[in-house]
Amino acid sequence: MSTGTQASDGGPGAAGATVWRVRGLVKTYPAGRGRRAGAAVRANDGIDLDIRAGEIFGLLGPNGAGKSTLVRQLTGLLRPDAGRVELYGHDLVAHPDRAARLIGYLGQESSALDELTVALAAETTGRLRGLSSRAARAERDDVLDELALTPIADRPLKRLSGGQRRLACFAATLVGDRRMLVLDEPTTGMDPVARRAVWAAVDRRRRERAATALIVTHNVIEAETVLDRVAVIDQGRIIASDTPSALKASVEGEVRLDLVWRDQPPLEIPEVAALRDRAELAGRRWTLRLPQQRAREIVASVTGGPAFAALDDFTLAAPSLEDVYLALGGREKGLVKA
């Protein structure tokens, strides 16, 4: 069923037309000089992407994978060393200035808006997107209402909690009505209510205005629940790109088995000693990724034999995108489940 990375090329099953086409994107940060010397970092190493009209497309990867570097090239902030970026038929490498006229961008930083009030941040953003003051104020009011920010409209951003500030910046991103939204870790620090408000607002724009969204995240749960398709990025490369369920299907039949020992694992038992070499160890917790049948056998033997006395807890779980990431050869431990 799953066509793996090929699905991103848009087989006959694809619905929307490709609106964002990225080919062979390469970006290397030069080695530091002087006291901060270090090796050059190839943060993006040949990235291909196809994002279709009306979808919520995600970039999932641990910290340092190269997500922000990619997004900054897609939004005209950073010039690629090589490769092509085309959005709605515009060549953004040749005309990076057009990105601002096509994209509503929420970066990871908000320092330019920090000292403004929530209302002024939204209104100013609208005016800098070319709206008249009247239109900017009207859109500001609508968006603040939609995101339930009206009660704190007059508070400066820097006096808000991290999650509220993030939501206020998201509100500013929505003013001026862009067809393409690019959100770099939009829900960082938000409580569940604010997160829901963000996803509802994105979904509404997708339904009512055929908006498309590119979302950067390192949160596996969020990726599984809100994204239509996801590209898994690791060390500057895309190692898979498909729907979350298709990606999970690629590790179907596998489960994750967690064994938590009370104290010392009973390594004198040969079965346990053999497991140790296959497990990922984190203190007293061992994590194994196994075919279902094999996992059941292990559970039966551990819980039925002498090892049981040393066992504190165990869980068997269906694979998550994190397991996909690891199964695909991802090496970093930076994905978050929350």
Binding site: M1, S2, G13, A15, G54
Partner: peptide
């Protein structure tokens, strides 16, 4: 896990 790829929303346009 369901192994059917979910359809991408927004009907209409055919093919990428």
């Amino acid at each position: 896990v369901v192994s059917v790829p979910q359809p991408v929303p927004l009907a209409g346009a055919a093919g990428a």
